[in-house]
């Protein structure tokens, strides 16, 4: 089956600013894909190109196998979009805005609309001027989720939601996945990505730096090791792949690259180990590692 989103060497300039620099992105049907990167990395720009709102300078962009700039209208029947910063018409009520957005996509069933309104605890009879940021975001979410589409494009959709609503959102994404919809989720909330996404793509300065299943990506970062030995273990410092050695009382702390752990264990075994813990990298560490400017050199 052909990929739902297939972006290859996409570049986009805004005047002198190179927002996207040969970016690659690929989503298979039915997957929930995390789209990550530091501020200004180019996530929203990529999404705008995918929606046909911005034209690529070079590279191939395929959405459902077609060009989103030329075929925007036809493709939009098959997708819903939620921006991170939702701006609504001040004098139009939330309910009216939802109806407008939904009808522009070709309508939705009313049961689903009222069910979503209830789940997101949104009062549709208030003018948008009086909505809080989170409530404006709920309007866009309800409008997007009420339609029966194949692809959800979500650009930081939960940046204004409280933890309770965040949970409702996560349930909705899981339902979408169960219904075999594809989801592109750009987010800075790593816990959200960790619980929802099958695969992630990490970009930095308009380039894809990593893409793959979360479990694979974990291998790219270092595990944190803490060890107490009867004999002096500081010789591990000489082993390849061992970094950041510190001493904390009798405890020795260091980090180990993914492939280097067997050699470390081999070195430590004869040294009378009293305690040994190895913590796999948290997603957070993974991202700090990938986002930081010197990440390039740390790639395997």
């Amino acid at each position: 089956m052909s990929p739902v989103i297939d972006v290859h060497k996409l570049s986009k300039n805004f005047g002198a600013v190179r927002a996207l620099d040969e970016l690659d992105l690929r989503l298979e049907a039915g997957e929930v894909h995390g789209f990550l990167g530091p501020n200004g990395a180019g996530k929203s720009t990529t999404i705008r190109v995918l929606l046909g709102a911005a034209k690529a300078d070079s590279g191939t962009v395929r959405l459902f196998g077609e060009d989103p700039w030329a075929e925007a209208v036809r493709l939009h029947r098959r997708l819903s979009y939620v921006p991170g910063d939702v701006n609504l018409w001040p004098k139009i009520t939330g309910g009216e805005a939802i109806d407008l957005l939904v009808s522009l996509r070709g309508g939705a069933d009313n049961r689903r609309r009222s069910e979503l309104l209830e789940r997101f605890d949104l009062d549709p009879s208030r003018k948008a001027r009086t909505y809080s940021k989170g409530n404006r975001q709920k309007v866009a979410l309800v409008a997007a989720l009420a339609s029966d589409v194949e692809l959800l494009v979500l650009d930081e959709p939960t940046s204004g939601l409280d933890p309770l609503m965040e949970r409702v959102f996560q349930d909705c994404v899981r339902e979408a996945k169960a219904a075999e919809r594809t989801v592109l989720l750009s987010s800075h909330l790593l816990a959200e990505v960790e619980t929802l996404c099958d695969r992630v793509t990490i970009i930095r300065q308009g380039r894809t730096v990593q893409s793959g299943a979360l479990s694979e990506l974990r291998h790219l970062a270092r595990a944190a090791v803490s060890v107490v030995c009867g004999k002096d273990p500081s010789g591990v410092a000489l082993l390849p792949g061992v970094h950041d050695i510190r001493r904390d009382g009798e405890r020795l702390l260091f980090s180990v690259e993914d492939g280097a752990l067997p050699a470390v264990l081999e070195h430590l075994l004869p040294l009378d180990i009293r305690s040994f813990t190895s913590t796999p990298p948290t997603l957070e560490e993974l991202f700090v590692h990938q986002y930081s400017p010197d990440a390039q050199g740390a790639r395997p």
Binding site: A53, V73, R77, N87, W89, L101, R105, V153
Partner: peptide, 13 residues
């Protein structure tokens, strides 16, 4: 205001 982006993401030419 960014509203056009929301609107144009629908089936809007």
């Amino acid at each position: 205001s960014g509203r056009a982006e929301l609107v144009r993401a629908g089936v809007v030419g």
